[in-house]
Amino acid sequence: MSAKRLIASSVAAVILGAAAATAQDVTAAVEARQGQFKLYAFNLGALVPMAQGNVDYDAEVAQAAADNLALLTALDQTRLWPEGSDNAAIDGTRALPVIWEDMAALQARFGELQDAVATLQNAAGEDLDSMRAALGPVGGVCSACHEANRAPE
């Protein structure tokens, strides 16, 4: 193998290696962000049945769930949304490419979510009506983002 060819193949190997690492990073990021949403859902699962009257209101449980949501929604999102992790590029996600046209808008939505959750955190342990009134806007922020940015199944 000539020196030139050796260099060329090493460069190719490095590039391929980099591409493979990127694909792994993308998969890890998709799994992590879906994990975060599952934790949102798990904690909402303590609150929604109370709000809908299917489960008795329990101030401590409601407060703990709202506190968890406040922690979870405060997580920094930067590395969870890498380029190439949209549903046109890979399987296993419903995130629409439109998200990457305006990442600042996505950050702004997480800001809105944090605000709505902060209100919920203040209200959740008060009483059922306060918790219910504050939970609606949280669902509204979730839904508005899903409306714009998530493909149907």
Partner: peptide
């Protein structure tokens, strides 16, 4: 409950054109 609040039984929320 979903039509009232947008929450699915697994506490996901409604999206896409169904959100409106």
């Amino acid at each position: 409950g979903y039509l009232a609040s947008g929450f699915t039984p697994s506490f996901d929320t409604v999206g896409g054109t169904m959100a409106a």
